[in-house]
């Protein structure tokens, strides 16, 4: 079985490349490397399955970063344990030859003491996205936050909210919301995003907690209606929807969903800095900007290595204190 396959694969590879070229015009990597440090491919580990939001941002950014630094930046999906498995995979590679996507949910597991790696093992490279979340309902159920809150008060603990999973930031925000609204919801964890959306569409749950950008199609079609945005200020396009600050939830609980890149703490600083500036160029590209707008990412999404590092440290402290306050810390 060996020989014919190997041959076919080569022919295929050539054919695929031809196809690629004929359909797009020439796009071969002919440029010179920007710095001498990069002589091997730098893995970009996505610690979640293919097709999700983190995967999309990594794949959009990797092409442009690759052009900047002159070596391949292959995207690798390493799913498992809310992002922990992938981050550990990145840490086990040679420092500086691998980076991974870090999102809020993974950071929360670090803060909660449930992750397989420590906060000081990673070093920030850049933040690519910061985006608002929202509580959403199915169309023709609750017209606005007031109606939802009234219904929740009438049936405490009966309305179901689809969330990510135990000890996530979703749970913190939900707990704060419950406090302000004076009622209880029932959080139902669905680890797969698609299952959360199907649950709201099919009426298995009443409310969905999700980033606005990840459910754009349902918002545009009117199937999902945001009733409360998790943000300090009104979200573009949803100015009439109250934000968590409007209903009196303290700012310290308003933790934005973010997606950024991190490397091992042992990675040389110049590599990190070069990567960080390649990130900036990626985030400034037209294609990426269109993508950002599509997912409602905020204008200040990009942060360089130093800013992102500070941001992560702040978030880590905030999440830890919030988890402690709502009694969600691991023993």
């Amino acid at each position: 079985m060996r020989a014919p396959h190997v041959r076919t694969r080569r022919v295929l590879a050539a054919a695929a490349a031809t196809l690629f070229l004929t359909s797009t015009g020439c796009q071969v990597n002919t440029h010179q490397p920007a710095g001498a440090q990069f002589n091997r491919p730098v893995d970009l580990v996505v610690p979640f399955g293919p097709g999700g939001g983190a995967d999309a941002v990594a794949r959009s950014a990797s092409n442009i970063i690759s052009e900047r630094i002159g070596v391949d930046v292959p995207v690798i999906n390493v799913d498992g344990a809310t992002g922990s498995s992938g981050t550990v995979r990145m840490l086990s590679a040679n420092a500086g030859q691998s980076m991974s996507v870090l999102i809020q949910d993974t950071l929360a597991t670090v803060s909660a003491g449930r992750a397989s790696f420590q906060f000081d093992e990673i070093k920030a490279v850049c933040r690519l996205q910061s985006m608002p979340s929202a509580l959403m309902v199915r169309k023709d159920t609750y017209a606005n936050w007031q109606e939802l809150a009234d219904a929740a008060r009438a049936n405490p603990g009966k309305l179901k909210v689809a969330t990510v999973g135990a000890s996530s930031v979703d749970d913190i925000v939900l707990a704060a919301t419950e406090e302000v609204a004076g009622t209880r919801f029932r959080a139902v964890p669905f680890s797969e995003p698609s299952e959360r959306y199907a649950a709201l569409l099919g009426g298995q749950v009443d409310v969905l907690y999700e980033q606005l950008g990840d459910v754009r199609e349902y918002l545009d079609s009117g199937d999902f209606v945001p009733v409360l945005t998790v943000a300090d200020e009104p979200v573009d396009g949803y100015a009439d929807v109250p934000s968590t600050s409007d209903i009196g939830i303290p700012e310290s609980v308003v933790l934005p969903q973010f997606r950024g890149l991190v490397m091992s703490a042992d990675a040389p600083q110049e590599i990190v800095d070069q990567m960080s500036s390649a990130c900036r160029q990626a985030s400034e590209s037209r294609k990426f900007a269109a993508f950002q707008e599509e997912v409602y990412a905020t204008d200040d999404s990009y942060q360089n290595a130093a800013e992102f590092q500070r941001f992560l440290e702040d978030q880590d402290k905030l999440i830890t204190s919030q988890l402690r306050e709502y009694d969600m810390l691991a023993d």
Partner: peptide, 10 residues
């Protein structure tokens, strides 16, 4: 060659 270059596997 196939798996490192074409299908990227490290």
């Amino acid at each position: 060659f196939i798996f490192v270059k074409v299908v990227y596997i490290s």
